[in-house]
Protein backbone atom coordinates (compact mmCIF):
# COMPACT_ATOMS: atom_id res chain seq x y z
CA UNK A 1 0.00 0.00 0.00
CA UNK A 2 2.87 2.34 0.83
CA UNK A 3 4.42 1.77 -2.57
CA UNK A 4 1.11 2.47 -4.29
CA UNK A 5 0.88 5.75 -2.40
CA UNK A 6 4.44 6.60 -3.46
CA UNK A 7 3.63 6.03 -7.11
CA UNK A 8 0.39 7.94 -6.80
CA UNK A 9 2.29 10.96 -5.43
CA UNK A 10 4.85 10.65 -8.21
CA UNK A 11 2.25 10.37 -10.96
CA UNK A 12 0.04 13.25 -9.87
CA UNK A 13 2.82 15.70 -9.00
CA UNK A 14 3.76 15.99 -12.66
CA UNK A 15 1.60 17.47 -15.39
CA UNK A 16 1.55 14.88 -18.13
CA UNK A 17 -1.10 12.58 -16.59
CA UNK A 18 -3.50 15.51 -16.25
CA UNK A 19 -2.97 16.60 -19.83
CA UNK A 20 -3.27 13.06 -21.13
CA UNK A 21 -6.50 12.53 -19.20
CA UNK A 22 -8.00 15.70 -20.64
CA UNK A 23 -6.90 14.86 -24.17
CA UNK A 24 -8.12 11.26 -23.92
CA UNK A 25 -11.54 12.44 -22.73
CA UNK A 26 -11.61 15.19 -25.34
CA UNK A 27 -10.96 12.95 -28.34
CA UNK A 28 -13.30 10.13 -27.30
CA UNK A 29 -16.21 12.24 -26.15
CA UNK A 30 -15.67 14.63 -29.04
CA UNK A 31 -15.82 11.77 -31.50
CA UNK A 32 -19.02 10.48 -29.90
CA UNK A 33 -20.50 13.97 -30.33
CA UNK A 34 -19.48 13.90 -33.99
CA UNK A 35 -21.13 10.49 -34.45
CA UNK A 36 -24.29 11.62 -32.72
CA UNK A 37 -24.37 14.87 -34.67
CA UNK A 38 -24.19 13.08 -38.01
CA UNK A 39 -26.62 10.28 -37.09
CA UNK A 40 -29.73 10.10 -39.30
CA UNK A 41 -32.77 7.92 -39.58
CA UNK A 42 -31.08 5.46 -41.94
CA UNK A 43 -27.78 5.68 -40.00
CA UNK A 44 -29.10 5.47 -36.44
CA UNK A 45 -27.06 6.05 -33.33
CA UNK A 46 -26.27 2.93 -31.29
CA UNK A 47 -24.54 2.29 -27.98
CA UNK A 48 -21.70 0.67 -29.90
CA UNK A 49 -21.37 3.59 -32.30
CA UNK A 50 -20.98 6.01 -29.39
CA UNK A 51 -17.72 4.21 -28.59
CA UNK A 52 -16.28 4.72 -32.07
CA UNK A 53 -13.53 6.98 -30.75
CA UNK A 54 -12.15 4.62 -28.11
CA UNK A 55 -9.08 3.85 -30.23
CA UNK A 56 -7.96 7.50 -30.16
CA UNK A 57 -8.21 7.62 -26.37
CA UNK A 58 -6.36 4.30 -26.22
CA UNK A 59 -3.38 5.83 -28.00
CA UNK A 60 -3.30 8.79 -25.60
CA UNK A 61 -3.56 6.52 -22.56
CA UNK A 62 -0.69 4.37 -23.79
CA UNK A 63 1.44 7.46 -24.34
CA UNK A 64 0.66 8.57 -20.77
CA UNK A 65 1.54 5.14 -19.37
CA UNK A 66 4.79 4.88 -21.30
CA UNK A 67 5.78 8.42 -20.26
CA UNK A 68 5.15 7.57 -16.61
CA UNK A 69 8.14 5.19 -16.82
CA UNK A 70 10.36 6.71 -19.49
CA UNK A 71 10.44 10.14 -17.81
CA UNK A 72 11.77 8.36 -14.71
CA UNK A 73 14.65 7.07 -16.80
CA UNK A 74 15.00 10.39 -18.60
CA UNK A 75 15.47 12.30 -15.35
CA UNK A 76 17.13 9.43 -13.50
CA UNK A 77 14.44 9.52 -10.81
CA UNK A 78 14.30 5.78 -11.39
CA UNK A 79 17.65 5.64 -9.56
CA UNK A 80 16.26 7.68 -6.70
CA UNK A 81 13.33 5.25 -6.69
CA UNK A 82 15.51 2.15 -6.57
CA UNK A 83 17.61 3.82 -3.90
CA UNK A 84 14.52 4.30 -1.75
CA UNK A 85 13.01 0.93 -2.74
CA UNK A 86 15.78 -1.56 -3.60
CA UNK A 87 13.16 -4.19 -4.44
CA UNK A 88 12.82 -3.15 -8.08
CA UNK A 89 10.00 -5.56 -8.92
CA UNK A 90 7.89 -4.19 -6.07
CA UNK A 91 8.57 -0.58 -7.07
CA UNK A 92 7.77 -1.18 -10.75
CA UNK A 93 4.72 -3.32 -9.98
CA UNK A 94 3.33 -0.54 -7.80
CA UNK A 95 3.87 1.91 -10.64
CA UNK A 96 2.14 -0.42 -13.10
CA UNK A 97 -0.86 -0.84 -10.79
CA UNK A 98 -1.27 2.91 -10.26
CA UNK A 99 -0.91 3.73 -13.95
CA UNK A 100 -3.28 0.90 -14.96
CA UNK A 101 -5.87 2.07 -12.43
CA UNK A 102 -5.69 5.62 -13.77
CA UNK A 103 -5.98 4.28 -17.32
CA UNK A 104 -9.02 2.23 -16.29
CA UNK A 105 -10.67 5.27 -14.74
CA UNK A 106 -9.94 7.33 -17.86
CA UNK A 107 -11.45 4.51 -19.93
CA UNK A 108 -14.64 4.46 -17.89
CA UNK A 109 -14.94 8.26 -17.94
CA UNK A 110 -14.31 8.32 -21.69
CA UNK A 111 -16.78 5.52 -22.42
CA UNK A 112 -19.61 6.73 -20.24
CA UNK A 113 -18.88 10.31 -21.24
CA UNK A 114 -19.17 9.35 -24.90
CA UNK A 115 -22.34 7.42 -24.22
CA UNK A 116 -23.75 10.34 -22.20
CA UNK A 117 -23.08 12.84 -24.97
CA UNK A 118 -24.64 10.53 -27.54
CA UNK A 119 -27.70 10.07 -25.31
CA UNK A 120 -28.15 13.79 -24.87
CA UNK A 121 -27.66 14.63 -28.53
CA UNK A 122 -29.99 11.93 -29.88
CA UNK A 123 -32.80 11.88 -27.29
CA UNK A 124 -35.29 10.05 -29.58
CA UNK A 125 -33.01 7.01 -29.96
CA UNK A 126 -33.04 4.35 -27.24
CA UNK A 127 -29.42 4.19 -26.07
CA UNK A 128 -30.08 2.45 -22.76
CA UNK A 129 -27.36 -0.04 -21.88
CA UNK A 130 -29.26 -3.30 -21.53
CA UNK A 131 -27.49 -6.22 -23.08
CA UNK A 132 -24.20 -7.93 -22.20
CA UNK A 133 -22.85 -6.68 -25.53
CA UNK A 134 -23.71 -3.08 -24.75
CA UNK A 135 -22.17 -3.29 -21.28
CA UNK A 136 -19.02 -4.76 -22.79
CA UNK A 137 -18.89 -2.09 -25.48
CA UNK A 138 -19.04 0.71 -22.90
CA UNK A 139 -17.65 -0.48 -19.54
CA UNK A 140 -15.20 -2.75 -21.32
CA UNK A 141 -13.25 0.31 -22.51
CA UNK A 142 -12.01 0.77 -18.94
CA UNK A 143 -10.62 -2.76 -18.86
CA UNK A 144 -9.00 -2.45 -22.29
CA UNK A 145 -7.36 0.88 -21.35
CA UNK A 146 -6.02 -0.61 -18.11
CA UNK A 147 -4.47 -3.63 -19.85
CA UNK A 148 -3.08 -1.44 -22.65
CA UNK A 149 -1.47 0.73 -19.96
CA UNK A 150 0.28 -2.37 -18.55
CA UNK A 151 1.64 -3.12 -22.04
CA UNK A 152 2.81 0.49 -22.42
CA UNK A 153 4.50 0.53 -18.99
CA UNK A 154 6.31 -2.71 -19.83
CA UNK A 155 7.50 -1.31 -23.17
CA UNK A 156 8.58 1.86 -21.34
CA UNK A 157 10.66 -0.17 -18.86
CA UNK A 158 12.26 -2.14 -21.70
CA UNK A 159 12.99 0.76 -24.07
CA UNK A 160 13.61 3.49 -21.44
CA UNK A 161 13.50 6.33 -24.00
CA UNK A 162 10.23 8.26 -24.40
CA UNK A 163 10.44 8.72 -28.15
CA UNK A 164 11.47 5.12 -28.76
CA UNK A 165 8.82 3.60 -26.53
CA UNK A 166 6.01 5.78 -27.89
CA UNK A 167 6.97 5.21 -31.53
CA UNK A 168 7.12 1.49 -30.95
CA UNK A 169 3.69 1.44 -29.32
CA UNK A 170 2.05 3.65 -31.95
CA UNK A 171 3.59 1.86 -34.89
CA UNK A 172 2.64 -1.50 -33.49
CA UNK A 173 -0.96 -0.70 -32.63
CA UNK A 174 -1.70 1.40 -35.70
CA UNK A 175 0.31 -0.29 -38.40
CA UNK A 176 1.89 -3.62 -37.61
CA UNK A 177 -1.24 -5.52 -36.58
CA UNK A 178 -3.11 -4.39 -39.69
CA UNK A 179 -0.19 -4.96 -42.01
CA UNK A 180 0.07 -8.57 -40.84
CA UNK A 181 -3.19 -9.27 -42.70
CA UNK A 182 -1.39 -8.53 -45.96
CA UNK A 183 0.82 -11.59 -45.58
CA UNK A 184 -0.58 -14.21 -47.98
CA UNK A 185 -2.50 -17.17 -46.46
CA UNK A 186 -1.08 -17.10 -42.90
CA UNK A 187 -1.54 -13.32 -42.38
CA UNK A 188 -5.21 -13.35 -41.41
CA UNK A 189 -4.69 -16.46 -39.28
CA UNK A 190 -1.98 -14.69 -37.29
CA UNK A 191 -3.93 -11.44 -37.16
CA UNK A 192 -6.88 -12.94 -35.36
CA UNK A 193 -4.61 -13.78 -32.41
CA UNK A 194 -2.80 -10.43 -32.13
CA UNK A 195 -3.40 -8.68 -28.81
CA UNK A 196 -4.93 -5.36 -29.81
CA UNK A 197 -7.16 -7.06 -32.35
CA UNK A 198 -8.38 -9.32 -29.54
CA UNK A 199 -9.01 -6.25 -27.34
CA UNK A 200 -11.06 -4.78 -30.18
CA UNK A 201 -12.92 -8.07 -30.46
CA UNK A 202 -13.77 -7.89 -26.75
CA UNK A 203 -15.42 -4.51 -27.26
CA UNK A 204 -17.15 -5.16 -30.58
CA UNK A 205 -17.51 -8.94 -30.83
CA UNK A 206 -20.80 -10.86 -30.72
CA UNK A 207 -22.90 -7.77 -31.47
CA UNK A 208 -26.60 -7.62 -30.83
CA UNK A 209 -28.64 -8.69 -33.79
CA UNK A 210 -30.89 -5.74 -32.95
CA UNK A 211 -28.07 -3.24 -33.32
CA UNK A 212 -27.58 -1.28 -36.47
CA UNK A 213 -25.58 -2.84 -39.31
CA UNK A 214 -21.88 -3.34 -38.82
CA UNK A 215 -20.82 -0.65 -41.22
CA UNK A 216 -22.38 2.04 -39.02
CA UNK A 217 -20.42 1.12 -35.90
CA UNK A 218 -16.76 0.44 -35.26
CA UNK A 219 -15.43 -2.18 -37.67
CA UNK A 220 -15.63 -5.73 -36.43
CA UNK A 221 -12.67 -7.86 -35.48
CA UNK A 222 -11.85 -11.03 -37.38
CA UNK A 223 -11.06 -12.88 -34.14
CA UNK A 224 -12.96 -16.13 -33.81
CA UNK A 225 -12.72 -16.74 -30.05
CA UNK A 226 -15.38 -15.41 -27.72
CA UNK A 227 -15.07 -11.82 -26.39
CA UNK A 228 -14.09 -12.86 -22.86
CA UNK A 229 -11.38 -15.36 -23.91
CA UNK A 230 -10.17 -12.60 -26.24
CA UNK A 231 -9.71 -10.10 -23.42
CA UNK A 232 -8.13 -12.83 -21.27
CA UNK A 233 -5.49 -13.40 -23.96
CA UNK A 234 -4.97 -9.62 -24.20
CA UNK A 235 -4.45 -9.47 -20.42
CA UNK A 236 -2.10 -12.45 -20.60
CA UNK A 237 -0.08 -10.60 -23.23
CA UNK A 238 0.14 -7.57 -20.94
CA UNK A 239 1.28 -9.67 -17.99
CA UNK A 240 3.86 -11.49 -20.11
CA UNK A 241 5.31 -8.18 -21.30
CA UNK A 242 5.36 -6.90 -17.71
CA UNK A 243 7.12 -10.04 -16.50
CA UNK A 244 9.80 -9.75 -19.18
CA UNK A 245 10.33 -6.07 -18.37
CA UNK A 246 10.70 -6.82 -14.63
CA UNK A 247 13.28 -9.53 -15.29
CA UNK A 248 15.22 -7.15 -17.51
CA UNK A 249 14.98 -4.26 -15.00
CA UNK A 250 16.34 -6.48 -12.23
CA UNK A 251 19.29 -7.66 -14.26
CA UNK A 252 20.21 -4.28 -15.69
CA UNK A 253 22.23 -1.53 -14.00
CA UNK A 254 19.86 1.26 -13.05
Amino acid sequence: MTLLAVERIKLFTTRSPWWCTLIALGVTVGFAALMAGTAEADVPMTVSASQFGYGFGLVVVMVMAALAVTTEYRFSTIRATFQAIPNRSAALLAKTVVVALLAGVIGLLAAFGSWGVATMMTPDVDLAINTAFEWRAVAGVGLVYAIAAVVAVAVGILVRHSAGAISLLLIYTNLVENLVTLIPTVGPKIHQWLPFNLAHHFLTGNPDPTGRPDQFGPGLSDATVGPWPAVAIFAGFGLLMLLISLVVANRRDA
Binding site: I9, K10, T13, T14, R15, F75, S76, T77, R79, A80
Partner: peptide, 14 residues
Amino acid sequence: WVHPNRSARAHLQW
Protein backbone atom coordinates in the same frame (compact mmCIF):
# COMPACT_ATOMS: atom_id res chain seq x y z
CA TRP B 1 17.95 13.19 -10.33
CA VAL B 2 14.71 15.12 -9.89
CA HIS B 3 11.70 15.46 -12.18
CA PRO B 4 11.90 19.07 -13.39
CA ASN B 5 8.15 19.62 -13.17
CA ARG B 6 7.83 18.27 -9.65
CA SER B 7 8.16 20.66 -6.73
CA ALA B 8 10.98 20.25 -4.23
CA ARG B 9 8.44 19.39 -1.55
CA ALA B 10 6.67 16.77 -3.68
CA HIS B 11 10.02 15.17 -4.51
CA LEU B 12 10.83 14.80 -0.83
CA GLN B 13 7.28 13.74 -0.04
CA TRP B 14 7.35 10.66 -2.21
